[in-house]
Nucleic acid binder design. Structure first.
Lengths: 343, 343
DNA sequence: GTTGCTCATACAATCGTTTGCATATCGAAA
DNA sequence: TTTCGATATGCAAACGATTGTATGAGCAAC
């Protein structure tokens, strides 16, 4: 009982006195097999507890029904929501996900790429590390025409779809909002200017200033790794600025929260002295006091869209060249951290 | 160039005028092949860009090098940390992870189990839903002797390893701490009493009361789904209690935070009027004001241990019968939410 | 020169499917 | 009765590895 042999299509065929070819076709619902035989076969399959052998099939068909995912780290609210969305779609479409973390290390990203290539994933969903410059490690996929989709932290790669929000616009709105609240000396906390998301947010911020005829100041840009600790460090620098800035726009809620807490400990009042706007709509944004104004960034939805899009490509129901960029809706959520007085 | 055929061991063999058997053995570093041939072969493999075909190998060896993971939801800080830990170990050991979410639905858990069984995973790592009663859906794995490890939300299943913290002790310490701060009317927010973690925490809480001769009150136990919203609802019920409780021990930080925020809005002071202790050491616990005393629950480490343990079983380097339960260290972290006056 | 032994390599079956092509069946039209 | 399409089924060759068993080469001892 415990070591029962697996049931194969040969067993089914033998029992019914038909050929394996017919069994194989019947199980795939091939119209060439008659309804009667199909029924006989599928009934017996259930009865004998047959389950198809993915390896044999994959070996034969040269497909894996597996999607590779490479992300910087999984344990952030945003990214785990993305993964949840991907899992949701993939499972319902019969695909498996192989998830690997680069931990913000380019070498690990390259290593993961190789692993996934050797696993012969059917497609790849990628969000890059802060520092990835060269995209050469994706060449093997391109050459073999394995579809590749970037999301969130994307890169310009010919023939690859990108899934994003309009970071420029989000930052523009955030900054404009701060200005509309009477703020003029607006610091921007961001990460390395290698990645689209941070470049675009900075540009949006700059444009908002320009449109309101507020001069841009290089020393108001603080670059870090956007961790909570980086936020606390930035707080010390902000504290030293003369005159004290009256607002901070942060490219990530966690970092914003770290900065807010540190400033509050220094006796600075939020939003009276300094207003804050974050990014991502992380759960902490409704816990910190005052609640943090932020940009809603739909992670779960982004994961779903990415997976759905890739699977559509794989099924041939969409052409990878037809859609090159998908922009998801995002919006500014107003909370107390940035509003000068509540209505 | 773009449609180059995959290089197989046959290609290598032909080029070197030797048999595929030798090539196969050489690539596995089988000592029976001479050093000289091995070198020739591995050099050529690199040169020609050979990569082994997992499906052919799996088909032949009947192993998949894949581990299945079933969890309630991935997008919580604790669970995404667990996954990160698992990914870390699995990747370094050459295993892949297939992660599936049950979303707290027993039906989805069963469906995922079937999917993973059909995927022929080598082993399974499971954290159960709130409501899973029967474990019958795991029988196919047991029968085929596929190792099965439960973590966090575990169940008694013969021959299965469980990985946990000592929930009883953690709750006992948390409650004792509250009592030591002069609290007597301690409410406990928890989840369904079907799962070990919540049962054990309640028992620890009860025992701590008993040891301090404080009568247990059934109406101080509030059962919910431990979401932030459930915390807010609980706050309303707590508010109505006469006399007002003076402490709350919550089985989850997120829920604790929801409850604290709601109570604060009602004008109740924390910790003066009501002290709080949470569970998990989620990042929000250091953001909420006052910072939340909690139990440190090492998610990343738990994921690593679970994966390590399973892989050791699979490699035969450990016997599944030898270790039945692994208890990880946890500890009470004191913060302002429960300490009556700071030193 | 034969025997015996070790070390290295080759042969060939096997794993469970898929699929192009060939074949069988059967009723209807010629 | 023969012929012709359909329609349904079967044959057999892949797919790319692994591995038990057989074979061959080389060499030392007798």
């Amino acid at each position: 009982m415990s070591n029962e042999k697996e049931v194969t299509i040969y067993d089914l065929a033998r029992k019914l006195n038909i050929s394996v070819a017919t069994v194989s076709r019947a199980l795939k619902d091939d119209p060439v097999v008659s309804k009667k035989t199909k029924k006989k076969i599928s009934d017996l399959a259930v009865e004998m507890g047959y389950r198809s052998n993915h390896f044999a099939r994959n070996l034969r068909t040269q497909r894996t029904n597996t999607i590779g995912v490479i992300i910087p780290r999984i344990n952030s609210y945003f990214m785990s929501s993305v993964i949840a969305g991907m899992e949701n779609i993939a499972t319902s479409e019969g695909y498996n996900l192989i998830i690997s973390q680069s931990s913000e290390s380019v070498e690990k990203e390259v290593a993961n790429t190789i692993t996934l290539f050797n696993n012969r994933v059917d497609g790849l969903l990628v969000s890059l590390t802060y520092d990835t410059d060269s995209l050469a490690h994706f060449d093997p996929f391109i050459r073999k025409k394995v579809p590749l989709i970037f999301f969130d932290r994307t890169a310009d790669q010919k023939d690859c779809t990108c899934i994003l929000i309009n970071n420029w616009k989000a930052a523009y709105e955030a900054t404009t909002h701060l200005i509309s609240q009477g703020r003029r000396r607006i610091v921007h906390l961001t990460a390395t200017q290698k990645r689209n998301v941070y470049i675009d947010r900075l540009e949006g911020y700059k444009q908002a200033l320009a449109d309101q005829r507020i001069p841009f100041r290089e020393d108001y840009i603080i670059v870090g790794n956007l961790s909570q600790e980086a936020g606390a460090e930035a707080a010390s620098r902000i504290r030293e600025m003369q005159p004290l800035p009256d607002a901070v726009f942060v490219a990530n809620d966690n970092c914003a929260v770290g900065c807010m807490i540190a400033l509050k400990q220094m006796g600075i009042r939020i939003p009276e002295d300094i207003a804050f706007v974050g990014f991502n709509n992380d759960p902490v944004s409704t816990v910190v006091e005052p609640n943090l104004t932020t940009i809603n960034y739909p992670g779960y939805e982004m994961g779903q869209v990415a997976a759905r899009n890739l699977i559509d490509h794989l099924n041939g129901s969409s052409n990878i060249h037809s859609t090159n960029t998908i922009i998801l809706r995002s919006e500014l959520i107003l909370r107390e951290s940035s509003v000068s007085r509540q209505p």
